[in-house]
Write a protein that binds this DNA or RNA. Structure first.
Lengths: 371, 371
DNA sequence: CTGTTAGCGCTTTCAG
DNA sequence: CTGAAAGCGCTAACAG
């Protein structure tokens, strides 16, 4: 039937149906009023030839290709995955597809990758937590239509969909303080990460609001391994009187907890642990991990909503910020009375048995009110 | 300088450089020998105009757009993510980008989604574990160039990159049998999943090879929740004498373990638990989860290697199958002597205290030699 | 209502 | 070695 050597073109269909290409185009795009008889013949020809319009040709004419790009630093991060999924599904509902560009954490390559990806698509979603703010501020407008996700940007022309990390941290500290914790440890994320900065801000606000509470920041990272490696330092801090740990995110918390247990600490009896992001596994951790829930998919969906508006030529909407929600689980509880009141703890003794005594105080930074 | 209203075209560059479009094209594509003087002027014009070739126009002429599609049933599955990441990175190294098409588990929509995605790209990667084999066998060739990942397909024209799930299961049972376990429980994945079928095959082989060993298959699923929900049934089986559980994958195992502990069972003292895939979190689970490691990124990289060959017009390579590697961790250990020899167990009593006595025997299927 | 005619921006013969 | 011209496949005026 159909000639399998060369994909059928609109000309083939027109010839076969005995009409002009314009008519075929009209029929296929439901334009104007077309004689039903012609429509029938066109459809028949299309079916017989197995014709499908060339995306490339159509893109050239229309100047768009119904595809949007999303650059992500790491496809394996649950947060970015969720955003991508939400975006992908929402965009698909409008006939758009998503092109992914994993920058493999190469922050310096991001601008180039973003431009290239944008060039192939009608719009772009920037997820670049590590990119210096000035650089992002300069880059984003050049990529328009673009929306920035997971961080803020002071440019009304570039919509933003983010998470109020500062507020989330503040709420988390409120939670811990409410339980009676006064000496907290924070396992910090990558210095370059924008959300890390926002978290620190939230922490400072919290410390100001809770005069009796202190938070020591320990350098850590954003992944499972980082959390695992930070366990010794945390144990040391606990021995020195800390009763709760806030991890940069759930991955860090999840990597941290088992090692803490290995070091002889009980969670939450000896130390409470909280994460951030509320990844699916958090509720199934041992013990179930208290976390600040972030609506990953919804972030992606909202990104699409803004991107679509931009593509349609509408003015950019207001910045959107989701407030994380506390998911209180077993990993956080009031400090034991002994730990709460005394300077010396039973648990500390247990911990010191297996934990190295290496002091990491030099890397520690206590958050002052104005710090 | 550059006119910001309309993107510069090759004609603009040609005019500005005072040469023909053909020359511009030649310079930009490094074709033939071009007069250095002309090249210089072209480059200057390009820079001045901020010119970038139109991807759409180029695609129309070349008949390709340096993009490949990948359809996945669920972007949140760690296995698929890993494959996507590996593919994305490998493809990027050759100047290709990846378009993702999440089918949101709508197996019946897959063919349509796949065709649509393929139509926008030069090739496609099919990850469709739930699609009936006959349907896939019929579809894949129509999508060529295409490669199927994570399952096999009996078509020499369609390359395949998969995981030897049967062998993995076999090896896992060997491991468990070697530890002394004889009564195993298998938490089965979705019936429609091809890898579920392969796992069952491996299980049957194993049972045949180990005369004293039996495996009871319990319907379960492929996600955290599924594992969590299956805990009661597992506890019942343990009370009835089972000493080890093999989960369809790590997600299931990770969801299962905490609930098992809640029900009063100790892992691995009362019951050993093993997963499959070796997701990053497995090693940080409580207890660390024994799993069959699958090279996720490598799968993606190999997929790209095959796809690239196909795009280049080379003959399709032989099917590739990775053999999972055992990662023996704490969650599997020899059964306690008491459990191993006696028909009655101490742990069972503990378990029965909190676990409902509901029998799930009706949903159970023991694997016979020829089953 | 339908056919004709220009392009969309780029590459590529084919002359010169 | 370079320019002119012919498309790639499709859509969108513009006439009829």
């Amino acid at each position: 039937m159909a000639d399998r050597t060369r994909p059928a073109t609109i000309a083939d269909v027109a010839a076969r149906a005995g009409v002009s290409q314009a008519s075929v185009s009209r029929v296929l795009n439901g334009k104007q009023n077309v004689d039903p008889a012609i429509a029938t013949r066109v459809h028949a020809a299309v079916a017989a030839l197995g014709y499908t319009p060339s995306i490339a040709a159509r893109s050239l004419v229309h100047g768009r290709n119904d595809t949007v790009a999303m650059v992500v630093p790491d496809l394996e991060n649950p947060l970015f995955q969720g955003i991508l999924k939400g975006l992908s599904l929402a965009a698909a509902a409008d006939g758009y597809r998503v092109l992914v560009a994993d920058t493999a954490e190469q922050a310096d390559e991001e601008p180039a990758i973003a431009r290239e990806a944008r060039h192939r698509c009608d719009a772009i979603v920037l997820c670049a937590p590590r990119m210096p703010a000035p650089q992002l501020r300069a880059l984003a407008p050049l990529l328009a239509p673009a929306v920035v996700v997971n961080r803020s940007l002071d440019d009304p022309a570039v919509p933003t969909v983010g998470v109020d990390y500062a507020r989330g941290m503040r709420d988390l500290v409120d939670h811990l303080a409410g339980l009676g914790h006064t000496r907290l440890v924070y396992l910090a994320g990558p210095d370059a990460s924008s959300s890390q900065g926002e978290r620190m801000r939230g922490l400072r606000d919290a410390v100001t609001a809770h005069p009796g509470v202190t938070v020591d920041a320990l350098p850590c990272g954003s992944r499972l391994d980082d959390g695992h490696r930070a366990a010794d330092a945390v144990a040391t801090a606990v021995r020195a009187g800390a009763t709760a740990v806030i991890a940069f995110n759930d991955l860090v918390a999840l990597g941290l907890m088992p090692r803490l247990v290995e070091l002889g600490l009980r969670i939450p009896d000896d130390v409470s642990v909280a994460g951030f992001d509320d990844v699916p596994l958090a509720r199934y951790a041992t013990p179930p991990l208290t976390s600040m829930s972030v609506p990953r998919s919804e972030l992606g969906a909202q990104v699409w909503s803004r991107l679509r508006a931009l593509i349609a030529g509408e003015a950019s909407e207001h910045a959107l910020l989701f407030r994380p929600r506390l998911e209180h689980r077993t990993s956080t509880a009031p400090p034991s009375e002994a730990r709460r009141t005394a300077g010396v703890r039973e648990a500390a003794a247990a911990a010191s048995a297996s934990a190295p005594a290496t002091a990491t105080a030099s890397a520690t930074a206590e958050l002052g009110v104005g710090a």
